[in-house]
């Protein structure tokens, strides 16, 4: 899980040094959030880079009194990922079997995933958008239910219930299809 204390650090001035410290703290969470949302390591790296680039360009508009840096960063990551998904849908390449365009080889680290892990990743990708978002924030970004609630404007208890339902759905589909 992400270091909850460090992620709550309030930032007054986003200079280069501060930004570098913050990127070191948050890059894992943002990358894995994008990975859970896209199922593609290459795309996740692009979206992560895009997220930090946008954050850097928009740093003068960051208002620490409104939100923690992590919340602000995740807001950008969500927007970047949503934009990517919209484009994918428009181009009708959302099918999981076509996630690696032009026969590009799978990134090495994904090839090393077991079949079961790949299957679970596909099941996550098959959840509806809201469920996928919650799973990505919880297990990809490693956020607490409270932080997710702050980010999405929902009560912590509602977030917990929704994550529970999404997990039940995953377990059901996992059992129905049956491994191996």
């Amino acid at each position: 899980m992400v270091d909850a204390v460090r992620s709550e650090v309030r930032v007054d001035v986003l200079d280069v040094d501060t930004f570098t410290d913050l990127y070191c703290t948050h890059i894992d969470a943002i990358f894995n959030y994008c990975l859970f949302r896209t199922g593609n390591r290459v795309v996740a790296e692009d979206l992560t880079s895009d997220t930090f680039e946008r954050a850097w360009r928009a740093r003068r508009r960051y208002r620490p009194e409104r939100a923690a840096f992590s919340t602000w960063l995740h807001t950008i990551a969500r927007r970047v990922t949503t934009d990517w998904q919209r484009r994918q849908r428009r181009r009708q390449v959302a099918d999981l079997t076509e996630r690696y365009p032009d026969g590009a080889p799978l990134p090495e680290s994904q090839i090393e995933e077991s079949e079961s892990q790949q299957r679970l990743r596909q099941l996550v990708a098959g959840l509806n958008n809201q469920e996928q978002e919650l799973i990505a924030l919880k297990f990809g970004a490693g956020m607490t239910n409270r932080k997710i609630g702050q980010l999405l404007g929902k009560k912590e208890s509602a977030v917990g219930s929704a994550i529970y339902r999404a997990m039940q759905k995953l377990r059901t589909v996992w059992s129905e299809d049956g491994p191996g």
Binding site: F31, E45, Q110, S116, Q117, L120, G142, P179, G180
Partner: peptide, 28 residues
């Protein structure tokens, strides 16, 4: 991680989901 037949309860599912996390590459 081999998850075959290992997801029997919520805790195992949580562990399985966490096992999907990866480390960003040096290029990123």
């Amino acid at each position: 991680t081999d998850l075959n037949e290992s997801i029997r309860d919520d805790d195992q599912l949580k562990q399985a989901l966490l096992s999907l996390r990866q480390v960003p590459g040096p290029g990123l």
